[in-house]
Design a protein around this nucleic acid. Structure first.
Lengths: 116, 116
DNA sequence: TCCTTCCAGTAGTCTAGCTATGGGAAAAGC
DNA sequence: GCTTTTCCCATAGCTAGACTACTGGAAGGA
C-alpha cells in the first residue's frame, strides 16, 4: 500500500517539527514519530534521516549530544536551536504558500474541456 | 518576493493538469498557465519544462505535434493521451494523500513544549 | 534596423532522498 | 549460554529531477 516516500524538500520541516513536539530526541525516535503521526503514510529511511541530521547540525538548526535512550541504549539526542525554530516557522510558511499555489492550479475541477 | 519554485515531483502533475484544462497546448502556453493560475507563486523555468515534456513523451503521457501558435509562430502542441489522464488522476490522488500525511505531522499546533 | 516577445531545446550542476551495507550493544527468546 | 530481534548510528554510491546558463530562430513593432 503505502509507498511511504518523503517529498523532496519536506524532510527538514518534518524533523524540525518532530523535535519541537518531542523535545530532545534521537534519530530513531524522530523517525518513529513521523511514521506514527502520518499513520504510516510517510516512512523516513535511515539513509535519508541521518545524512539530513548531519546537514542540519552543520546548518546550526540542531545540536547533538550523546546519551542513553529509554531502552538503555547509546543514542544521540538532537535538540532544536533558536535558528532551528526560526527555520521551522519559515519552512512551514513557505510550504503552505506553495501548496496553496499548487492547489489553485490543480483544483479548478475538471471542466470537460469542450474545446475542439 | 515569490521565489517561485516547483517542488520536485509536482511538475508532471502541474503540466498534465494544465493540458487537461487547456486542451492541446505548446510548452510556453503551459508555463504561462501554471504561472497565472498560481498567481505567480510558481514559475516553470524553460530548462525544467522542456526536459520534463521530453520525458513525458517517452513515458507516453502526451503526444506532440508541430503547428502554428495563435501568434503565428512555430510551436509544438502537446496533447494528453489516455495514459496521461490516468497518470494525472493517480498523481493528484497520491499528492493529496501525502499532503494530508504531512499536515498531520506538522499541524498538532505548537504545544509550547514546556519540557525543560 | 534593432529590440522585444514568443517558442524550443541542450549541457552541465546540484540537492537531497533512496538502496545497500556495515557496525554494535541491549533485551528477549530458546 | 547462544541466537535472534530490536534498537540505534552512519556512510557510499545511485538516481530523479529541477536549476542555471546557454544557443537558436522567427514574428512584429519601434
Amino acid at each position: 500500500m503505502g509507498k511511504a516516500e518523503i517529498p523532496p524538500g519536506t524532510l527538514y520541516m518534518l524533523i524540525l517539527r518532530s523535535l519541537e513536539s518531542l523535545g530532545p530526541m534521537h534519530g530513531y525516535g524522530i523517525a518513529l514519530h513521523i511514521e506514527r503521526m502520518s499513520a504510516s503514510v510517510l516512512a523516513v529511511e535511515e539513509g535519508s534521516l541521518y545524512p539530513a541530521l548531519q546537514r542540519m547540525l552543520i546548518k546550526g538548526w540542531v545540536k547533538a549530544e550523546w546519551g542513553l535512550s529509554e531502552n538503555n541504549r547509546r543514542a544521540r539526542y538532537y535538540r532544536l536551536t533558536t535558528a532551528g525554530r526560526r527555520q521551522l516557522v519559515e519552512e512551514i510558511s513557505e510550504f503552505q504558500r506553495v501548496m496553496e499555489a499548487i492547489t489553485r492550479v490543480i483544483e479548478p475541477a475538471s471542466e470537460p474541456a469542450l474545446s475542439t
